[in-house]
C-alpha cells in the first residue's frame, strides 16, 4: 500500500532559480526566504518520499493557446526542462512514474474529470524550482515525478472548488494504488502577486496569512471563493493558489503543519513555504 506522506507548498518565482544558480542564498535579500527550507529538508529526510505528485501551472513552455488544457496529467517516462525564453541554465531531467500516472488518469476519468494526458511533456521553472528548493545539491532528483498542470493562464480558470475536487480525486487514486511508494504532494506558485496591469506589484499580506492559516484545517473555506475572488484578493498571478488548493485536496488524512515561512518580497511576490504532514486516520 502506498503512503501519502504529506504536502509541500511553495512559491516558484524564476528569480529564485537565478539566486540558486548564483549561490546568493545567504545574502540579506534572499536569506529570509531560503531560511524557510532547512525544516523542509529535515522533514523530507524523515518522510523519505519516492514519488512526487506536483500540482503546478505551465508558463507557456509546454502549452500554448492552440491546445490549452484545463487539467493536464503527465504520463511520460521522463520529463525535461527547456528554454522558457530567457536562455537560463536548464534544470535536471525528471524520471517519470508512468504506471502511477495512468492509474491516476484512470481514476480521474472514471470520476468525471476530463484531463488531457501527456506522454511527452516539458516542465518549466514552476515545477523545477520547488525541486531545487526541496533537494538542493542532489546529483539526481531522489523522487520520481507525476506532474499535474492546472490552467491559471487563460480564463475561464477552473474553480477553486473544482481544483480541490481534483486534488481529492488524485488522493483517492493514490490511496487505491497498490505499490509500496511513499508519495509527497507538491503545490507550487503564489502567494499574492500581480505582474500585469496598472495594479502590478499588488501584494496582500493579510489575505496570504488567511490562506496559510486556512489551507490545512479548512480547505473548503478557500474553495468557496471563485477564481476572480482570489484574483481580487491575491493579484492576477496570486491565482496560482489554485495549485495549492488542489495539492491540499490530495492529502486525504489528518494534516498537521510541520513548518511554514512567509517573506515579502521575492521579486514581485509574497513568497511562502509550508509543509503539511498527512497522517492516515487511525481505524476506530
Amino acid at each position: 500500500m502506498s503512503t501519502i506522506v504529506g504536502g509541500i507548498f511553495t512559491s516558484h518565482v524564476p528569480a529564485i532559480g537565478a539566486a540558486i544558480a548564483k549561490g546568493v542564498q545567504q545574502e540579506p535579500y534572499w536569506k529570509p526566504f531560503f531560511d524557510g527550507f532547512p525544516p523542509v529538508h529535515r522533514w523530507l529526510e524523515q518522510a523519505k518520499p519516492d514519488v512526487a505528485v506536483v500540482f503546478y501551472n505551465d508558463h507557456g513552455l509546454n502549452f500554448f493557446l492552440d491546445k490549452m488544457p484545463t487539467f493536464a496529467v503527465g504520463a511520460a517516462p521522463r520529463y525535461e526542462n527547456a528554454d522558457e525564453g530567457w536562455g537560463l541554465p536548464l534544470f535536471k531531467p525528471f524520471e517519470g512514474a508512468p504506471d502511477l500516472s495512468w492509474h491516476i488518469i484512470d481514476h480521474l476519468v472514471g470520476s468525471d474529470f476530463d484531463p488531457t494526458t501527456c506522454q511527452q511533456m516539458l516542465v518549466d521553472h514552476s515545477l523545477a524550482i520547488p525541486f531545487e528548493l526541496c533537494w538542493p545539491e542532489a546529483a539526481a532528483w531522489p523522487v520520481k515525478l507525476v506532474p499535474i498542470a492546472i490552467n491559471t493562464v487563460q480564463h475561464p480558470l477552473p474553480s477553486p472548488r473544482r481544483c480541490l475536487a481534483l486534488g481529492r480525486a488524485v488522493g483517492a487514486a493514490l490511496e487505491s494504488w497498490d505499490g509500496p511508494e511513499r508519495i509527497v504532494i507538491l503545490g507550487t506558485g503564489g502567494l499574492s502577486h500581480q505582474l500585469d496591469g496598472e495594479r502590478a506589484g499588488f501584494i496582500n499580506t493579510a489575505y496570504d496569512r488567511h490562506c496559510l492559516d486556512t489551507l490545512g484545517p479548512d480547505p473548503d473555506a478557500l474553495a468557496r471563493q471563485d477564481a476572480l475572488d482570489i484574483i481580487e484578493q491575491a493579484g492576477s498571478q496570486g491565482v496560482e493558489l489554485l495549485n495549492w488548493i488542489a495539492a491540499r485536496g490530495a492529502l486525504t488524512g489528518r494534516v498537521e503543519e510541520v513548518t511554514r515561512n512567509y517573506h515579502v518580497p521575492i521579486s514581485n511576490t509574497a513568497a511562502a513555504t509550508m509543509v503539511l504532514a498527512n497522517e492516515a486516520p487511525v481505524p476506530a
Binding site: F64, L65, V153, Q154, H155, P156, Q194, D196, G197, E198, R199, A200, F202, L228, I231, E232, G235, S236
Partner: peptide, 21 residues
Amino acid sequence: TIPGTPIFDGAAATQGYALNA
C-alpha cells in the same frame, strides 16, 4: 472587472492570438 487587473479571457485570447503566438 477588477481595477487595474487584466482578465485574459476568451475575448482577449481571440484578440491577442497573433501577439501571443
